[in-house]
Design a protein around this nucleic acid. Sequence first.
DNA 1: TTAAAGTATTTAACACCGTTAAGCAAAGGT
DNA 2: ACCTTTGCTTAACGGTGTTAAATACTTTAA
Lengths: 199, 199
Amino acid sequence: MGSKERIIRQKEDVKCKILTAAWQIVKNEGWQSLSMRKIADAIEYTAPIIYGYFENKEALLVEFTGKGFQNLACHLRAAKAKHRLPAKQLEAMWFAYWSFAFEEQEYYQLMFGVEVYCCEMGMNYPEEDLPWTIFSEVIQQLIDNSNNPKTDVCKKYYTFWSVIHGLICINIVRKGQSDELNQEILKDAITGIIRTITG
Amino acid sequence: MGSKERIIRQKEDVKCKILTAAWQIVKNEGWQSLSMRKIADAIEYTAPIIYGYFENKEALLVEFTGKGFQNLACHLRAAKAKHRLPAKQLEAMWFAYWSFAFEEQEYYQLMFGVEVYCCEMGMNYPEEDLPWTIFSEVIQQLIDNSNNPKTDVCKKYYTFWSVIHGLICINIVRKGQSDELNQEILKDAITGIIRTITG
DNA sequence: TTAAAGTATTTAACACCGTTAAGCAAAGGT
DNA sequence: ACCTTTGCTTAACGGTGTTAAATACTTTAA
């Protein structure tokens, strides 16, 4: 009975439609004005059907958070693949992180709670660790090739992350910063921290 | 007719009660669950009376934002007053900033959009510039006493701010970071940036 | 073919939310 | 005593997330 598969495919299709409709709303009007009823309207259903695919609104947001982290991971790996030297890789990866934050601002806001509350962000799902996993590998390589082989990877990672995430937050919340200034700070910070590793 | 003043005082008293009730709710349950009706319940009135004192909920949040910035400014000035050398002042001020962010976390979240959406944060009210005003003075002094007197104050300020704000955000959103690591990163970042100024 | 079972979808409802307009009751001035 | 103003409440509108009941449709079994 091949119709079983068709039905499953149709069900999957509706789930997909829910996600794309939600995404469209968020892109157009921001996370603030995303509502179950708006999503339902967009896919020409009524609100309760969404609960057949997502337990609640938070589950929907968690789904997006996961996609966001995977999306970011792709960008980071792509940036890394463009270079051979760990220092160059790291630089490119943080610039990719920066670009992701603005090109996919809605993802970034949800992933890191920038003006958006999603849920308790404490290690609930594994994707959250993707950036750390990807970055720490390269940082470790850089440390291994350096003069101070017992440098703490974690500390360096958080130092990088803090500057860049902080700068991103400031730019998103108080829109309209000088781009030249941003780029200067970004470049200085990255090269500065890399220098503290290579020694 | 002295009763006029008493009435004004009573009116002012209600406004105060609204604010303290709202603050209590936020402290206990977070910004997410602050509502006009809850505030009204707490002060034993009905919701619409609040609109006699605040145009809407956003205006109430803006009031808190203002108070938050003034509160922060106090902390910064107090920290500055404890030292004479600009470098020491700056260090103490950023540590005060850090402390404020966690001791008055609800203020901080609202002021800088950490998991909370207040309104368009773009320079709507003057208090937003207080940190910049206070910090830039000290940073300028440090630059004047240094070898590179044409260093950009703005750039240095944003560099400081980015690291510290970023670290704070990460800690608030993903609660449960290592405090030792935080303090290390904080101290390193601050002394590091100061060194880039003094040369 | 038709009755029963199961599934998909909608409608209605609950308990909230911010906000506004209408009503009421007490106080003030004339 | 009447009128006006003020303070406050009730009721309502349109919105939110979410659940239970009712309906329509499809599949299965007799």
